[in-house]
């Protein structure tokens, strides 16, 4: 079955203010690169009347270092541009390079990856399949087929950039018709597969701001094929150490196991002031992986992803302890 886009009107504003005015219409939807939205529209998961393209807005382009030393990444920057940029932290570039395929990275945007819709085996299906099996919660039905007794949707957060941005203490600048605000990436998400972020429909993500960072950071992504897939699990860690190798600050984030990236706060608090010995890493791994409850809603089973969670958390902590933050996958 070939799939065609449903009918819609395309508008291509050239300024942020114009775009913000256009998307205050509730039947309109933002499109960045479209690599996630268009397949969903083809499957009739969403059928916006108007698409507001952000492609021609110069304010969303480019990567720069601002006066405060922050790395400012425009939401319209493509993942390929991000992966190739000498201005962004290496962990951000390598996380971008680990997303999807070369074709998709040339089109997909930073804003699109940060706002990436949650995914699930029951929603990312053609319309006929969903109708035949009964529409799930995210699809307007009354049952979550992953957890039928649940009152909320369990679709998975699959953004690779968000865990890294949270680990680095990043924030987002959002612009709406009536003003703008800056929000920590950590506060941007919430663990609900339908309302997975706190952006209102009338807001546009304009920039990702990353504070200057001189510690050690890594992002380990587990996926079925090492060159293309969505994460089955992603672990981002960023830490600073004193001269005695004791941790002076850390953020540890587990992605793709819930509807939002999960901060491992208990593990972070345990690690502060400690040297990353084998025993310390073992205890931090236990604290970070215990609350993780992957559901059976992507490829490979939930039990396998639960098993792999401590493995990847340990590897990430070992990497930043040894300062060997080369990505564990052999990427060119």
């Amino acid at each position: 079955m070939t799939m065609r886009l449903p009918p819609f009107d395309l508008v291509t504003p050239t300024t942020l203010q114009e775009a913000a005015g256009l998307i205050s219409d509730p039947t309109a939807s933002i499109v960045g690169g479209g690599t996630d939205l268009f397949p969903k529209m083809k499957r009739r998961q969403t059928t916006p009347v108007t698409l507001v393209s952000l492609a021609e807005i110069d304010a969303l382009k480019g990567i720069r270092i601002d006066d405060e030393g922050r790395c400012v990444i425009g939401a319209g920057v493509t993942l390929a541009e991000l992966a190739d940029s000498p201005l962004v932290p290496a962990v951000v570039a390598s996380a971008a390079d680990a997303i999807a395929s070369p074709q998709i990275r040339n089109t997909a945007t930073v804003g699109g990856n940060l706002c990436l819709d949650t995914r699930c085996n029951y929603i990312d299906m053609p319309e006929l399949w969903r109708e035949a099996s009964g529409h799930c919660l995210k699809d307007g039905g009354d049952t979550c087929w992953v957890a039928p007794r649940s009152d909320h949707c369990w679709a998975i957060s699959s953004t690779d950039l968000a865990p890294v941005a949270i680990a680095l203490g990043g924030s987002l600048r959002l612009v709406a018709a009536d003003g703008e605000r800056i929000i920590d990436v950590d506060d941007f998400f919430q663990n609900d597969g339908i309302d997975y972020h706190t952006k209102s429909p009338g807001e546009i993500v304009v920039e990702l701001l990353l504070p200057a960072f001189t510690g050690r950071a890594t992002y380990l992504k587990h996926r079925r094929r090492g060159s293309i897939d969505f994460p089955l699990l992603g672990v981002a860690a960023a830490a600073t150490f004193d001269d005695a190798a004791r941790c002076t600050g850390i953020r540890l984030v587990v992605g793709a196991v819930a509807s939002a990236p999960l901060r491992a706060i208990a593990a972070e608090e345990f690690l502060i002031g400690r040297e990353f010995t084998d025993d310390v890493i073992e205890e931090a791994t236990r604290l970070a992986s215990n609350p993780v409850r992957p559901q059976d809603n992507t490829d490979t089973g939930s039990r396998y992803r639960k098993w792999m969670t401590p493995v990847f958390i340990t590897r990430a902590l070992q990497e930043i302890a040894s300062d060997d933050t080369t990505n564990q996958e052999e990427e060119p």
């Binding site: 479209g34 690599t35 083809k42 074709q103 040339n106 089109t107």
Partner: peptide, 29 residues
Amino acid sequence: EGCGTGDCGACSILIDGKLNCSCLVLAPE
């Protein structure tokens, strides 16, 4: 057109020198 969703690459073309899936690009763009 293989998949129409950017997974298969059968529709790959170069746009301004960059590799793209033409099934995920709108013609007006």
